[in-house]
Nucleic acid binder design. Structure first.
Lengths: 199, 199, 199, 199
DNA sequence: ACATTCGGGACGGCCCGTTCCT
DNA sequence: AGGAACGGGCCGTCCCGAATGT
């Protein structure tokens, strides 16, 4: 487990262990010792790569941001019809969903709800991620309007925000109720809502 | 502030102070001393009324449950058209929303996301509340279908879950981005979605 | 050792243990656990009586201040001839000096030299004590001038400062060199210096 | 700032940076990282030149010893009248004193009071320096007695010790009270005391 | 019954001096 | 000489019983 004298590997190890722990148990409930005992590293290694716990958390947010943009926006930019693409993504993700994805919820939303009131730096960074997600999604919807696949009367910004919020909310509800079925049911409704937006 | 020798008042004081503190700063970040210094009471008083912090938190959840049912379900049972009623509730709440309601988010969702992975008792209790909310809402939709105001092809359970999830998600997004505008935009989309459900 | 449920005793126990430890090992080198293991108490007890280590240190300074004023100023105010009184005090203290008083140095000077550059609150409080010592000693010298026992040409303030500084310096040198003899020799010279101040 | 591949320069850089930091903040409060970030060097460089922090501290003591002997003893050996020479030194030093010399105190005394109780090796080395200072000063006074400029009845050893102690004490008091005036007043009294020693 | 004061432990995050491998 | 990793210690804080009034 120990990645001695391989700083990049060590850093990655810490980061991934932190991501998993934060995702499962939350930021506050995760002690640095939890992360260290998982990785087999010691305080010194962590302190060498990150000045404090907050910095580690922010680095984890970078990871999360990349994952979200990759999952929900990468394909969208390459397809002609954003609505169909979104629906297909929702179905596809739904098809390969694992139990952990349900019971531990959305990593970003977990951190968002936990940290917003406790650390302004975190809140701002998380807000940035949501804004980017929202904005890029709105852009694709606007493109759809121009290309005639999305109803021209809707407000792309409002719709994008709602989609992001709804996805987050669905995953949060599924986590709280520990119910995969509920996630599917909600996802189905979101797909239905998207159908209403077609031109 | 001190309600000496008035047990009910003391209990209520503790409960309300705890609610406010949990809402604003989260459960973990709120120390018992925070609550005590706000109320002017001492440890003994608190531990006389509640065996531990968890019990206090659960009692706060009772408060939250009542508030939610009262706000979102009471009127619904008395109106003929559940869709219009929901839309009117959303507009009404939106009309009298205060900044605090945005920046501190939904009390239930805050606790849900923070506690789910940390305390099974909490999670179960919160899941109960969501389930009750969902179920009673579904019942009203089903009644709407019977009375011909709601499209008969939709699944009342799935729709109810989605509405609850979307509301929660919208409020969560607004909290994270500290944006009242975003809350309104999302709410507008939710109202729009409801429109699609009419018979 | 444990003074359970006797808050005053507990506080005193902590204070005296802290005084001894700070005196012997310095403020920084003394961990709270050192104090706790000496007293048999725990963090909770300490935290109950003092908000933090600094407050404990400041409370120890109160102790030190009283001890200094009692030792070096109390009798002085009651005697006719301040010079003879000071000389007698020096001889008397010298007569009953114990090894610990030499090897651990002056508690106030130890803290002064250690803390001045590290904690402005400490520095200010210690400066206060020295100023009080200086000022009250100067007052007695001025009285001596009025009563004709002290040479009228000397500046009481400067002399008082020098006496305090010299006493401190002598004790510091003795501590560093671990030499009782040196302390006596220096004390003798101070007595000699005082002789020069007679009217 | 970086003195790459110039070992002597690197060593000197470390030493001077360490001296300044120890003088201003004390030995314990100065972390090796403080020194390294000031010099722009790395751990490897430091541990190449010094086996550990203690060795660095001891090397700084060498610097301090040279400075003290140079300042307070070099001229003394060349003058006929040690008392006048000392007085002139005190006045001269007083004339060109800078604020930093007051607020940061005597580098040797700072280390002495901080380290004596914590590190026997340090204590012994510092004791050596004081003893050398004392002894060489006593020698000059003895010479003065032989040459008829110093009163023959005084004990040169005791007087030398007292002078060293008084100087140290004066500077310490000035540091603690952050007062240049106090340093001058005390210095003036020391000059006065020296006057009493003339043959 | 109700409320206060006092004390007990257990970690948590931070930071430090040092060693070891390039 | 550079820099990664080690391991231990410190202060603060927290949740909670236990003893004590009232």
């Amino acid at each position: 487990m120990n990645a001695s004298k391989n700083p990049e590997k060590t850093r990655k190890l810490l980061l991934e262990s932190a991501f998993t722990a934060f995702h499962r148990n939350g930021y506050t409930a995760t002690s640095l010792n939890d992360i260290l005992s998982t990785t087999g590293l010691t305080k010194g290694a962590l302190y060498h790569h990150f000045p404090n716990k907050q910095a580690l958390g922010l680095a984890v947010l970078d990871l999360i941001e990349n994952s979200i943009l990759e999952t929900w926006l990468a394909e969208l930019a390459e397809e002609r019809d954003p609505i169909s693409c979104l629906q297909s993504l929702l179905r596809h993700i739904g098809g390969q969903i694992r139990r952990n994805d349900v019971v531990f919820g959305c990593p970003l939303n977990n951190l968002a709800q936990e940290m917003t009131s406790r650390d302004e730096v975190f809140r701002e960074r998380i807000g940035e991620i949501y804004n980017r997600w929202r904005t890029e999604l709105a852009e694709q919807l606007r493109r759809g309007q121009n290309e005639g696949t999305v109803k021209s009367t809707v407000d792309p910004n409002a719709v994008a925000a709602f989609i992001v919020a709804a996805m987050t909310g669905c995953r949060g509800l599924a986590k709280t109720t520990q119910s995969v079925d509920l996630l599917f049911a909600c996802g189905q409704q979101l797909i239905q809502y998207l159908e209403f937006l077609r031109a």
